[in-house]
Design a protein around this nucleic acid. Structure first.
Lengths: 196, 196
DNA sequence: CAACAAACCAAACACTTGCTTGGTAGGCTA
DNA sequence: TAGCCTACCAAGCAAGTGTTTGGTTTGTTG
């Protein structure tokens, strides 16, 4: 008796269940029987909806990435000043953690492993694309004078990327601090440091 | 079974091989046959040296943690000023990444999963211990006036922890930047921010 | 009502997994 | 020389793995 109005198809329900498990237990460590159990069906029945376990992750990751990089592209293309762009990019990332926690976690934890398969070559492309976005924003910031001249851009990029995305490990929606609050605090530290 | 003699060279070789694989492919995703292949023996022969696959990770992680937390304890107990202590703790961490890359990676990637077993309950204890260390250092910094008064200590702790440890994903010894250089840059960003 | 498709079941398949057992080769020492 | 020890092999087992196949239920539609 799961009366799901809305456009939530069974396929999407199953993907959400799989995403939750992949994110918490890992892809390899989640069996198709785990997924089926959580969905209240038998493992074989999953293959009525999906070709393989791999295609499930594929669908989860690719659709999320498409959405995220669309937002990055908007920011880069905007005519805001460098500091505002940086600000916006950070906030979009924390927003993604808030709204697509499982997808972010899966990407963080499994990208290296999955990337070894041809099917997931696009993950490496996305990584490169992300690097380009942040490098562009940071370089804009330096040449406009908003950021310090002595920064190692690659290192700062990694600092931001790691710190932002790794927050998916502890952030839980509905906690005391919203993702807006966290973004505020993070930007303060990043831009001005922790010393008085 | 348990305490065997020391200087068992072959045993240490096998542990190093296992650590490399666990760090790269993940614990669950590394089979005992993978380890045996890399060592040039058959999988069953591993059980002459170890009780189980789990006991291999156990040995790898526990001995590393013991070493690391010994160093943290020294720093906390020292009479250096707050900022110097913070500095030292960050540097010790990057040093650990340099010298025990595999061990750090395994802990970062597998602690959550392994922590669900009784055998690895000590991992959670170590996490708590680490949190206490950083909170102490940060609180010292705030009350001494070296750090800003408006900081959310727990959030700053997470940012530091994440940023430092996640570097194990991309840091490779012998690269252009040494772990000393990276620690310098990170501390600059952390303490003073990236704005001019 | 008949026709149909979506969702699922029941059972199995081939393969992989961690681990066990009994045995052997070679070095060291009394 | 005999005894012992470390390190390993060869073969296999039971459980778990992703996936396939043929059939069943249920609701919708012409």
């Amino acid at each position: 008796m799961t009366s799901q109005a809305q456009t939530s198809t069974r396929r999407e329900e199953l993907l959400a269940i799989a995403a939750e498990l992949f994110a918490t237990k890992g892809f390899k460590n989640t069996t198709v029987r785990d997924i089926a159990d959580a969905a209240g069906i038998l493992s074989g029945s999953l293959y009525h909806h999906f070709d393989s376990k791999e295609s499930m992750v594929d669908e989860i990751l690719s659709s999320f990435q498409e959405e995220l990089f669309g937002k990055y592209a908007e920011i880069v293309a905007s005519d805001a000043d460098p500091r505002a762009k940086l600000d916006a990019a950070v906030r979009v990332s924390f927003e993604a953690i808030d709204q697509h926690r499982n997808e972010v976690a899966i990407f963080q934890n499994e990208a290296d492993y999955l990337g070894t398969f041809d099917r997931f070559a696009y993950l490496a492309d996305r990584n490169k694309q992300s690097r380009d976005v942040w490098h562009a924003l940071l370089n804009e910031g330096v040449s406009s004078g908003a950021l310090r001249q002595d920064l190692d851009i690659e290192l700062v990029y990694r600092f931001i990327r790691d710190t932002v995305w790794v927050a998916v490990r502890w952030y839980r929606p509905g906690a005391k601090l919203s993702h807006h609050d966290i973004a505020d605090q993070y930007l303060t530290i990043l831009l001005d440091g922790i010393t008085s």
